[in-house]
């Protein structure tokens, strides 16, 4: 999901990407409450009757479900934000244990949409002052192309304005 915020024309230009739209508080409690009592009763029954591998496989299955919900909860607050103003292009990103803040001089930054990688999906690459970062981990392929085009258009206008 991408939100584009344009405060005054043409700058600053801001794009915020979040993992999924409509994501709600993970229903971990609901998900586990449905299964855990059942697994406890059935798992204990099989354990007592000598079929202990069933208990182990049930525990693994429940652990998989819990891990899925914890993953969603852990990453629900992730975001990537790109802000372009007259002087700076700032990229902020947040993921569990990985907060990043990168600033470029907006007069010297270049933007490219590269197609490649293992899955052939487009990547939005920002380069400037000897650094290169990829933006758009949370964007779909279509959104990467869209943000890339819009950002290129605005940077081109900004560079023209700087020269003028």
């Amino acid at each position: 999901m991408v939100e584009c915020l344009q405060l005054g024309s043409p700058l600053p230009f801001r794009v915020t990407a979040r993992p999924t739209p409509g994501v709600r508080e993970p229903g971990l409690g609901t998900a586990v409450l449905v299964l855990a009592p059942w697994f406890a009763v059935a798992g204990t029954f099989f354990l007592l009757h000598g079929a202990w591998p069933i208990t182990a496989f049930m525990a693994a299955s429940l652990a998989g479900l819990v891990a899925a919900f914890l993953h969603v909860r852990r990453h629900a607050g992730d975001f990537e934000q790109l802000t372009l103003d007259a002087d700076r292009l700032v990229v902020d990103s947040h993921a569990p244990g990985d907060d990043r803040h990168t600033e470029f001089n907006s007069q010297w930054v270049s933007v490219a949409v590269q197609t490649g990688g293992a899955v052939g999906a487009p990547r939005l690459v920002l380069r400037g002052q000897g650094r290169e970062i990829v933006f758009g981990r949370l964007l779909s392929a279509a959104e990467v192309g869209c943000v890339g085009r819009e950002l290129s258009r605005r940077l081109a206008r900004l560079h023209q304005w700087g020269r003028g």
Partner: peptide, 25 residues
């Protein structure tokens, strides 16, 4: 002022065999 970036008319996605092997859609 809010603005929305409308995706380009053609949807961009991998094509060919790679699309089907690696697709997450």
């Amino acid at each position: 002022m809010d603005a929305t970036l409308a995706p380009h008319a053609h949807d961009e996605h991998p094509s060919g065999l790679a699309r089907w092997l690696t697709t997450t859609n």
